[in-house]
Design a protein around this nucleic acid. Structure first.
Lengths: 363, 363
DNA sequence: TAGTCCGTGTTGAACGATCAAATGCTCGAA
DNA sequence: TTCGAGCATTTGATCGTTCAACACGGACTA
């Protein structure tokens, strides 16, 4: 139907110049109202759409946000959360005029290589990273390159002066919520099935449970007694539950760091209340009460942070090399030094969302 | 580090013209070996990468494959399969030099609108569609537009003369496999928990079970008696299982159209063998034997079909309007009419993959 | 010997948009 | 009357790549 319509076609149809059409699209305020309407009419009539390729060539902006899609893990738990996240990201990005570009990488090194590849070829405007861990090389690299990015997950163990924007869910608040719910139901000895220490996310979730117990008057010794650590997985959850329930002074209810462990605890057979984490399909399927992360909101926050960064950076990427390198330096200094630069960059944003408790039969 | 390196920089460094560099990259056979090596060295030395935007402008190819990401369904079953699929697609596409661009849409109409939007702005080279249903408007539209695409899912109920490329998994073979497995274990009365008629996928899976039973000597009446239909969901599965097990002549084993229904059947409490479909995390978690679709292979087939289409179509998109419309006509005729066109297009490819049975405790 | 072709490489133009600078115009102040 | 300021719009150049046409030397054909 529609042949390729260019900005020149629109200009001819509206009897103005190319540039005026461009202005109507990009900075309508400089165009007289009458002219603007005439041009908009022509755009409608011809079904004109900007060619992203041509625009990118001139402006250096691709309107693409790159995100890694994680290997579909066999436990499928993380996979589900990630799936929802990606969906939310795509939707929010679309609303802001951006699209999500996927890539994969098996490990951090491969991912660094992919950065170069993507930046050279498709030139995404920004990256979104997930599951950041201690001393993550990816954030360092992106900071060096001066590419805007945001992570889903706090920068565990990163020195505070090297700040970058992140969005996360308050895991401690989630487990605290679950624990208080069980306390209110009259339970005093509430066990925690968690991962081994050293995982930022896992330690955070354990801390929320411990804090809630302490607030309720439990002593450190009792808390340590109720704290059980194991790798993730259903059989591990079952074994751990047995250990806590069959102890000398047994736990009467369980808070778990993941739905996998919680499912194992349920299968242990004792009919004590169990609460999981992530509200996965497994939880819904077996009637497991679980802490739900507001993933859609997380994705929306990521996009809105990026959009703000990119708008501030509007002329950055397309500019000449010299200008760009200054830009990089400026970005890093803004964090560590704090010297007043001409155009003052807003500090990196951090957003922490609150989880909720989805109540089902298990508790 | 690296400022923007252009093809002209490489040309200068290798002391040749721009075009020669371009030739080394795109049709190395026309360049003398000595020159080629010199240019490749320069490319390495300068860290040159083609600018996709500039290339796209000239050639009309974006090296992007658009795929819709489905809303994260609350049952999470389909979500998991889709997640694995998307991962495989991204990986296979990357190997072929393509990237996956995501979009969302709430319904078919919205998706059609998104087609226009994407095609106008980012101009993906091809689309990948999933969960096609009866009389799907999307395939029709893409055929009209002449945009290459492939679907994961057979064209249920589409007249055979309007063919297009698809990749699918042989669901009937999967349920037949499961049924024969139970027959071999000595069971004669094997029930089927399926979806209501009218779903292509569901009917197909039921047919495989029925065929296996018939092959084992069961009569039509007995098969009808063992066939139970219900909407998807865990509670529905539990109820349906009760109905089949508590019948006058009870089923002694169950084959299910989905893991959700199978999980419900397991929860019905009778300890009879149950086999699910899709090998989701739920199945792994509860030890459910399930039919596994080779999703990675499906994704790889999709990409290889698309690549073949796009290579045949190499100069298509960038060409003038007239030429393009002829192209569209040619494509449609190739299916229905069969007139010999100058450059003979290969017929659309169809690939049917075979599923496997993952054995666990439940059967 | 002239003509043609092949292999190799070069040059100018084009893709469609935006940027930077120039233009025409009106208006009010010197 | 002239000049400058301010606004709305236009013009020319440019982004990085590939296409189309052509140049050049040598070998092969007529």
């Amino acid at each position: 139907m529609a042949d390729k319509v260019t900005i020149a076609d629109v200009a001819r149809h509206a009897k103005v110049s190319r540039q005026t059409v461009s202005n109507v699209l990009n900075s309508p305020e400089v165009v007289r109202e009458e002219t603007r309407l005439r041009v908009q009419e022509a755009v409608q009539a011809l079904g004109y759409r900007v060619s992203q390729a041509a625009r990118q060539m001139r402006t250096g902006r691709s309107m693409l946000i790159a995100s890694r899609i994680e290997p579909a893990q066999d436990d499928g738990i993380n996979g589900f959360v990630f799936d929802r996240y990606l969906h939310g990201l795509t939707e929010s990005a679309a609303r802001a005029g951006y699209r999500v570009l996927l890539y994969t990488a098996d490990d951090h090194d491969a991912e660094l290589a992919t950065f170069d590849d993507l930046l050279g070829v498709h030139e995404p405007d920004a990256f979104v990273l997930t599951s950041t861990d201690y001393g993550d090389p990816r954030t360092t690299r992106l900071l060096e390159l001066g590419i805007p990015f945001v992570t889903f997950g706090r920068p565990w163990g990163v020195p505070p002066e090297r700040r970058y924007p992140w969005v996360d869910v308050d895991g401690a608040a989630g487990t605290a919520l679950a624990t208080r719910y069980l306390l209110d139901a009259g339970h005093r000895r509430i066990g925690f099935l968690g991962w081994p220490g050293g995982s930022g996310v896992g330690d955070d979730r354990r801390a929320g449970w411990a804090r809630a117990l302490a607030d309720a008057g439990a002593g450190p010794a009792e808390i340590a007694e109720l704290d059980h650590r194991t790798d993730d997985g259903v059989p591990q959850g079952e074994a751990a539950a047995h250990a806590l329930i069959d102890a000398g002074r047994p736990a009467t209810a369980l808070v778990c760091v993941s739905d996998s462990l919680a499912l194992g605890a349920l299968q242990a057979g004792r009919r004590i209340p169990v609460i999981g984490f992530d509200d996965t399909p497994v939880a819904r399927a077996v009637g497991l009460t679980s802490v739900r992360q507001p993933i859609t909101e997380v994705a929306a926050s990521c996009v809105s942070i990026l959009v703000r960064l990119l708008d501030g950076d509007a002329r950055g990427r397309g500019a000449a090399g010299r200008e760009r390198e200054q830009n990089v330096g400026g970005r890093q200094d803004a964090g560590s030094g704090g010297s007043a630069s001409p155009l003052r960059e807003a500090p990196p944003e951090q957003v922490l969302h609150q989880p909720t408790l989805v109540r089902r039969q298990s508790a």
